[in-house]
Every structure is written in C-alpha cells, then in structure tokens.
Design a protein around this nucleic acid. Sequence first.
DNA 1: TGAAATTATATTGTGCACGATATAATAGTG
DNA 2: CACTATTATATCGTGCACAATATAATTTCA
Lengths: 150, 150
Amino acid sequence: MFVPAKLQNMDDKLKLKSQVCFPIYALSREIVKHYRPFLDEIDITYPQYLAMMVLWENEPQTVNQIGDKLNLDNGTITPLLKRLAAKGFISRKRKSCDERVVEISLTESGKQLKSKAEKVPQKVVESMGVTPEDLMQLKAIVLKILDRAK
Amino acid sequence: MFVPAKLQNMDDKLKLKSQVCFPIYALSREIVKHYRPFLDEIDITYPQYLAMMVLWENEPQTVNQIGDKLNLDNGTITPLLKRLAAKGFISRKRKSCDERVVEISLTESGKQLKSKAEKVPQKVVESMGVTPEDLMQLKAIVLKILDRAK
DNA sequence: TGAAATTATATTGTGCACGATATAATAGTG
DNA sequence: CACTATTATATCGTGCACAATATAATTTCA
C-alpha cells in the first residue's frame, strides 16, 4: 500500500503517476477552471479576485503589501493591479510622504463587487463536488508543506 | 478546531486565510520555484520536464496524447513541444497514414536527458524539506479531489 | 551634506495557460 | 461520390508568472 520513496526503483521515479508535484499543479489549474465561469460573471480573473480579496479585507494597501500576501512579485502584481484599475475596481495613488509608494484603494465599484463575490466560494465547492471534510484535510496538509517550503 | 463551512460567517468567506484554493495555487507555484534551479541545469522548464517525462515513459506519442496526459490544451502543448524540438530533445513528424497527426519522438539528446533528470525529484523533496509521509498524504487527498473535480 | 546603499515600483523578455478560431485531413453519410 | 461532420493540430489574443534590469525616491553614514 504505502511505498517509501527509497524503495521506488529508478525507473518509476520519472513516471507521471509517481509524481506528487504534478497532481498539485494539475489541481491548481483545475480549481481556476472551476472559478472561471463564476468570476467571468463579475468580470475578473482568479488572480485579480485574490487581489480584490486582499483589499476587501484591509484597505488601502501598497503594491508590495498586496504582492507579499499573494506571493506575487512586482512583474506580476503591477500589471495585474493596472488591469483592475482599468476596470474601475481600484485606484492607484502615490503617497505624498513617500513618492516611491503606490497606495491601492477600492473604488465604489470595487466595494460593491464584494457582495457578488461572496457567493463564489460556495458555488465553486459545489461545482467541484468536494466534501468540506476533504477540503479541510487538503488545506491542513497543504499549509503544513507550504510553511516548510517557503 | 474544525469549523464547518456553513458556520463561517459572511465576513470570513472572502478572507484569504479562509480560502482553500489559494494555498494550493501558492503551493503549486512554490513547487515550480523549487524545481527551477535543478531544471535550469538541464535546460528545461517544469512543464517541459513533465512533457519529457510522458515521453520517457512511452514513445512515440502524438501531440494530443501528451496534452491529454498533462491536461494541457493545444494552445499550450503545441508551442511547448516546438520549444523542446528547438532544443533538440524531441522530433516532430506527421504520420504518413494520417497527415493530421503529429508524432513526437525522443532524439538521442532527449533520451540521454533522462539519466540527469532522474536525480531531480529527490533533490526537490530535500530542497522543500518535506517528509515522505506528508507527501504521500498530500498526494492521496489531492488525487481524490482531482478525480472528483475533473 | 553628498555619495553610496536601500527601497518601492515599473519595465522587459520568455514561457506558460487557455478560450476562441482557423486550417487541413479524414470519416461518415445521403 | 460529393458534401457535411469530425478530428488533429496550429494560431491568435489576453493574462499571468517570474527573473533580470531599470528608475526614481529615500536613507544612511562617511
């Protein structure tokens, strides 16, 4: 049943079925696919939804504060926030006391989006057909590993 | 300790900490980051490594066979395979009996890459600092959920 | 105080990821 | 046997994801 990695022979090590990382990579993409139809309705992508979530929780925040929370670097978060600004959900303003810092705030439209977004998580869980128990177990082990790996 | 989703209040539903999907998305990217230094040494990316793994296991295979195994559509797998061909690891040939089908084979260079790649999984596990037990548990729950979701 | 180091953000280049569409070959069917 | 449907692959457009580099503002400290 349980085969310790050490007992795996060399031939198996490179089989897709033996991999742990591939299922996680596949699941991550599968989750985003399940989010898509619901997020399409409110005109945002999954990474944009994550950024909005960070702001719904606390606002305003700087570009780096948002990037740090999502583990996304500048090359990803800057254009992402620009797209959210172009859609009118957030506004960008340089701090007068430190002109390096760009502060991101929610617009009225961005605040209103929150109530629509609140229904999304439950819809996704239903769409994926997973039980809350499995989800909690998954989350626990993922957080444990993520904590070590970072 | 365990809070059923139904008992979560509306305010918590959109907090990053309450999300299950975000940690998976974050872990998936974190894993790829841990692969990068080792894959850089053999001049391939993580998705390219997955495609090579499919071919090391069985060869030749068509474009769609490879894409199906990785859950990657044509718009992703076609250019990825072209890049692997440009690097000289694979060759592409249309089948004479059905000119629609492109068959992908390993070149000598592609076959030789396998022995170098065999050391990678163990190095990544060490680099991430996870135990085999955690990995097996993670894989089990991820596969269970992936199976339902697909 | 002014040059060097640090910090925050932006830009560039490459490679996914995927929906939508295109193209061309083959199969099915009236 | 033509004509429609299907299939396999490719192309296009948008949006991440990230390393590397650039830029500009602030800090540090000699």
